[in-house]
């Protein structure tokens, strides 16, 4: 029982990171109908910028959050201008490959500058918050969980209660008609894309804090896993992506408990594949219904 709750707590912590990343995929997929395969690299850049902040400026968690947010936002903004706006009208597959290329470019550039080795990250909030019947929760876990929830709530507010949010939702439904409604489609896509980058970068910062490390290639696994999580929850639905992210984190941690750490990645993917065989649109995703 103790183990059950301990793994649940760990799963929720880790699931929060996946949820943030899954949202990043979902936002871009929503407005462009396209998967941004450089999300994992932006995650790594978020981790990198917080690592740099802590190493060279000041060991501050909250400053790192701000810097990561900014770096993710700007990098994604630039990526959208290069990979999408500039070659708009080209085939979708061209944009897709462009995001993969961009991802490789970022990873290798960072590896060249800071080396391929894993670097140590400052430790934050190392104290234990409380231990109850053998379940240990650290202050760090609590901070991560709460921060993720705050960001997710803020994002829901942004998307469902603001003008830009309405534009994002409308463009997600029908880009052409959105333009006819007076919505600046290009700007909306640019904002959604940048926001997605900011989410991914904050997830990266949290990854660095959680695992107390940073490396140039750290974005690959979380990137691919949270993509699966987003598909699992329903790529076209934001609540679905959040749910998928948390479920992925929880399943993974239970899997580690039942089998062994070596099977960590295998288990989550097997669960996802089996699930998608039964429900290909994901948990909350909907099949497009068109009435002509």
């Amino acid at each position: 029982m103790t183990m059950f709750f301990q793994q649940l707590v760990n799963g929720i912590t880790q699931g929060g990171l996946y949820a943030l990343l899954a949202i990043a995929y979902s936002l871009v997929y929503g407005v462009m109908g396209l998967v941004n395969f450089s999300t994992g690299s932006i995650y790594m850049l978020g981790a990198m910028s917080s690592w740099l902040v802590c190493k060279y400026i000041i060991e501050s968690f909250w400053l790192s959050v701000l810097i990561s947010f900014g770096v993710g936002f700007v990098v994604a903004f630039v990526l959208e201008k290069i990979a999408f706006s500039a070659i708009r009208g080209a085939t979708r597959i061209a944009s897709l490959i462009c995001t993969i290329g961009f991802s490789q470019f970022i990873n290798e550039a960072v590896a060249l500058i800071f080396g391929k080795a894993t670097q140590g990250m400052s430790t934050f909030f190392d104290q234990e918050l409380f231990a109850f019947l053998g379940v240990h929760i650290s202050v760090m876990q609590a901070v991560l969980v709460v921060t993720v929830i705050i960001i997710l709530v803020a994002l829901q507010f942004f998307v469902y209660r603001t003008r830009i949010g309405l534009a994002i939702r409308t463009v997600s439904m029908d880009e052409k008609t959105a333009g006819l409604m007076g919505i600046n489609v290009n700007r909306t896509i640019s904002i959604a894309f940048s926001l997605s980058g900011a989410c991914a970068a904050i997830a990266g910062l949290m990854g660095a804090v959680y695992y107390r490390s940073f490396s140039a290639y750290m974005g690959w696994m979380p990137g691919i896993k949270s993509f699966s999580a987003a598909v699992f929850g329903g790529l076209s639905s934001m609540p679905g992506a959040i749910l998928g992210g948390y479920l992925m984190g929880i399943i993974e941690n239970f899997g580690v408990q039942v089998f062994s750490t070596g099977y960590r990645d295998v288990i989550s993917f097997i669960v996802m594949i089996v699930f998608l065989l039964v429900r290909p649109q994901g948990i909350l995703g909907s099949k497009k219904k068109v009435k002509l």
């Binding site: 052409k176 333009g179 006819l180 409604m181 007076g182 919505i183 600046n184 489609v185 290009n186």
Partner: peptide, 13 residues
């Protein structure tokens, strides 16, 4: 002009 600019100029399509 972009569609949103034209829509803002009071043409509804």
């Amino acid at each position: 002009e972009k569609p949103h600019i034209i829509a803002q100029r009071r043409i509804a399509h």
